[in-house]
Design a binder for these strands. Structure first.
Length: 392
DNA sequence: AACTCGGGGAC
DNA sequence: GTCCCAGAGTT
């Protein structure tokens, strides 16, 4: 393969060279600085947890994820928000699209919220997008990205762990994190039982994370811990033989990796039912309503929702929309973190005699073929694909 | 301390 | 189907 100058520059710029775990000193050795001169030599020493993990990261960690390439506070911040409760492989395409559309802080700050939500649609937890947008305007107003823990935590959407990640990765500060990965690694390493969301367990894990976070190479350590949890110390079937701290891991030693961390105490989810009304007029326009800014699918566009078919037909009568025909479709289930939603889609074809009725800015008749340019929840987007696009 | 926020990957 | 993920905000 021809190795062009440009490719070489790209390689040189982006490829992280493996680094020694301890600067210029070989692994597993350290200088005793206060020793008498005659003894002031390199002596063998047991490597710390951080050193072992950094060594592993240098050899096996992922160092070319999109947000690891051109590191800036803005890019790290956006990635950390997207990665909250969302896996890396899910985030990557969204991150690329988002960065193309909002390449820097200012472009995000001046953008309308609807535009931000549109590029977030499908990723879930939409409060993250609203908070991201709100924070972008706050930071833009400040004139510079906050660089202290307290200032960052003040911003909506940034908690202690995300603040720690931003400060350590983007600003090279000595700050710990405690995300799901770090919780799992530490809970196993120390064989700590109890749900890691329990405040009591969480306090202990913060204490441990703080004590292990090194002052040198904090950014790499932060990435390393998350990567270790995501690729080796996984929830199911952890790859213990590849783990750099397996030797002292209490869970591994006691065959407890499968029981730890303790799963969240489960509750049986309540079931809610509704009718989702796909209202189509004679010009094949579809009625969409914008949901309230907070709550389920906050700010996104959806179909009118009713508790029964009678209610939805009755509503059409109220709105003076003569029903031509209605077709009940197969019910589907969407599961949220705290309840099941069993929804029955119904296509109601109506004769829209009066377009002026629908001019409130939370209601809109949209051309069927163009609905996808709105911010839709995933189940709604799915219905559009299933029942609308093919009919037009 | 308990609830509220999604969507999808892994199993 | 279930569990849970680079968590944070609200009450």
């Amino acid at each position: 393969m021809k190795f062009s100058v440009d490719k070489f520059r790209h390689f040189e710029k982006n490829h992280h060279k493996p680094r020694s775990c301890y600067q210029n000193i070989p692994v597993n050795y350290r200088i005793i600085r206060d020793a008498p001169l005659s003894f002031k030599k390199i002596i063998p020493m047991k490597p710390t947890i951080a050193e072992k993990i950094l060594c592993w990261f240098d050899q096996h960690g992922r160092k070319d994820l999109p947000w690891q390439l051109e590191i800036s506070p803005y890019r790290v911040w956006v990635s950390e928000i997207m990665l909250q409760q969302t896996q890396v492989t899910t985030v990557i395409p969204y991150y690329h699209r988002f960065m193309t559309h909002f390449p820097d802080l200012e472009s995000l700050a001046v953008a309308p919220l609807d535009d931000v939500l549109l590029h977030w649609a499908g990723l879930g937890y939409y409060a993250r997008a609203r908070n991201l947008h709100k924070s972008a305007r706050l930071i833009h107003q400040l004139g510079q990205f906050p660089t202290s823990l307290d200032a960052l935590i003040t911003l909506p959407g940034i908690g202690r762990s995300t603040a720690g990640a931003i400060l350590s990765i983007a600003f090279k500060q000595h700050q710990p994190i405690l995300d799901g990965n770090v919780k799992r690694v530490l809970a196993r390493y120390h064989a700590i039982s109890g749900w890691t969301g329990d405040p009591k367990v969480e306090r202990e894990l913060w204490r441990l994370s703080t004590s292990y976070t090194p002052k040198q190479r904090t950014a790499d350590y932060t990435q390393a811990m998350m990567d270790l949890g995501a690729t080796v110390c996984t929830r199911s079937k952890p790859a213990c033989p590849h783990c750099p701290i397996q030797a002292d891991c209490l869970a591994h030693k006691n065959a407890l990796t499968q029981q730890l961390p303790t799963p969240k105490p489960k509750q049986t989810l309540p079931i809610k039912e509704c009718i989702l009304t796909i209202l189509m007029d004679q010009h094949q326009n579809i009625l969409l309503i914008q949901r309230p800014p907070s709550g389920i699918w906050g700010g996104l566009w959806s179909f009118p929702e009713f508790s029964s078919l009678d209610d939805s037909l009755g509503w059409c009568v109220e709105q003076q929309l003569p029903v031509l025909e209605s077709q009940i479709l197969a019910p589907q289930r969407h599961t949220f973190s705290h309840f099941h939603l069993d929804y029955t889609p119904v296509i109601i074809k109506i004769n829209n005699l009066n377009n002026n009725v629908m001019e409130a800015n939370t209601r809109i008749w949209y051309k069927a073929a163009e609905i996808n340019s709105l911010a839709l929840p995933a189940p709604i987007s799915r219905l559009v694909q299933q029942y609308i696009i093919e009919n037009v």
